[in-house]
């Protein structure tokens, strides 16, 4: 199966990754090759097989509902590329 350039651009949009035209070309070929190798899975009968999400089932892991101090604001904002008045700053979402 071969991915078209439009399909690659659509996936990149879903993933929020800006790609150059050269990257779109290269990824189209590489992903098509990789997906081609995956077709062997179609030959395996899984009609009565449940999916496994995690290898050793742990269910309903809970902790006591107790309050505790959060990280200090200054620490939380320590690595922020842009900050203002104790907040992370981002470009306006609405114009």
């Amino acid at each position: 199966m071969a991915l078209t350039a439009d399909e690659v651009r659509y996936i990149a949009k879903l993933a929020r990754v800006a790609l150059t035209d050269a990257e779109v070309d290269r990824l189209g070929g590489e992903l098509s090759t990789i997906l081609g190798h995956f077709q062997v899975l179609n030959d395996i009968d899984t009609s009565d097989v449940p999916p496994t999400a995690q290898s050793f089932d742990l269910h309903n892991v809970e902790r006591a509902d107790v309050t505790r101090p959060s990280q200090p604001l200054e620490q939380v904002l320590l690595n922020a590329p842009r900050r203002e008045d104790g907040y992370f700053r981002v470009r306006g979402v609405l114009d």
């Binding site: 996936i11 990149a12 993933a15 990789i34 395996i44 097989v49 449940p50 999916p51 496994t52």
Partner: peptide
């Protein structure tokens, strides 16, 4: 990293989830 993000996004996207991700999880059981 971009290659794998793209591959994973594709495998989880509408129309492909059952054929790829769910199928892989079933073979994982085997």
């Amino acid at each position: 990293v971009k290659r794998r993000i793209m591959l994973g996004t594709y495998a989880l996207s509408a129309g492909y989830y059952d054929a790829y991700y769910l199928k892989a999880q079933k073979v994982r059981t085997l």
